[in-house]
């Protein structure tokens, strides 16, 4: 459901399994299992990578989207979950627009429930694939300890931030937040992290990883941020920010020219393509752990 109470050892276990998956050392771990992908909210990369992961691992996959299901007919989340559960699902992958939806679902089914993003709550598999991509880039999970990471942008509305912050913390990284006060929770001290007001300030602090969050520019500009120009000036990354040893991450989809100047997206210092690639291995591992386990695995 969330990564807040996951230990370092558990993270290590999932990442090792993802490594096995990527290395072709897992053979059809989901053979005979049935996985349901219940995406109550649109998603491209998360749903595609879960579906691909499940199929390649040999599972039977049932995909529900909001439009093609009884949800549009007004069936409640709980009733939908009960129905799916009675069809004999081994694991239920849920994406929903409200925080806490996956936890609620888990109370009504014996199947394993995997949170694929709930509102502004959590997006645990995103944070896991970020850790995986970082470990690969830095030469191992242990190499993450002590690294300085700055999470930049709309922390207030970000489920990614709410999973990445505890995940990076558990991995032993030092985390700072970079955002204007309008894009931070009122109690930005909730995580006990330092807050900075620009990418420049984060680099001065010694950030080795800039983790950029997507700005929902249609919703935010005017109300919480004056303009794309001012946002890009203080919170965007451009070529002048790049330096040896600095890694750029972004959960996607990128607004080129807002969070990142276009040509930096595919620069050598950008881990963005690696993050997408890591999704498959990490989600295979999460599905294998979840569907194969007797108890529900928090992931």
């Amino acid at each position: 459901m969330s990564l807040e109470n996951v230990t370092r050892e558990e993270l290590q276990e999932i990442l090792d399994l993802a490594g096995d998956s990527a290395g072709g050392r897992l053979e059809q771990p989901l053979e005979g299992k049935t996985i349901c992908l219940a995406f109550f909210e649109p998603s491209t990369r998360t749903s595609a990578s879960f579906e691909l992961a499940a199929r390649r691992a040999g599972a039977d996959v049932v995909s529900l989207s909001r439009e093609g299901s009884s949800i549009v007919k007004g069936e409640s989340l709980v009733d939908t979950v009960v129905t799916l559960s009675n069809l004999g699902m081994d694991a239920l992958v849920i994406r929903h627009k409200a925080a806490g939806a996956a936890s609620l679902a888990a109370r009504y089914t014996e199947a394993a429930v995997i949170n694929a993003g709930d509102g502004c709550g959590q997006h645990p598999t995103q944070a896991l694939l970020d850790l995986y991509a970082l470990s690969e880039a830095l030469g191992g999970f242990d190499e993450l300890a002590g690294r300085k990471a700055a999470i930049v942008g709309d922390i207030l509305h970000s489920r990614v931030a709410r999973s990445v912050i505890p995940a990076f913390h558990t991995a032993g990284m030092e985390v700072a937040l970079v955002a204007p006060d309008t894009l931070l929770p009122q109690e930005s001290g909730a995580w006990n992290l330092s807050v900075m007001d620009s990418v420049d300030a984060a680099l001065e602090w010694g950030a080795e990883i800039l983790y950029l969050l997507r700005l929902q520019k249609e919703r935010m500009t005017g109300a919480r941020v004056p303009s794309v120009g001012e946002y890009a000036r203080y919170y965007g990354v451009n070529r002048s920010h790049l330096r040896p040893g600095l890694l750029i991450m972004h959960p996607g989809p990128v607004n080129r020219g807002v969070e990142i100047v276009g040509d930096v997206v595919l620069d050598g210092s950008s881990l963005i393509p690696n993050q997408v690639a890591a999704g498959l291995a990490v989600r295979t591992a999460v599905l294998a752990l979840a569907a194969g386990a007797t108890q529900k695995v928090a992931a």
């Binding site: 004056p226 001012e230 000036r233």
Partner: peptide, 8 residues
């Protein structure tokens, strides 16, 4: 309605 570019 819309914030000005206060930092600029």
């Amino acid at each position: 309605e819309r914030l000005t570019e206060m930092r600029l």
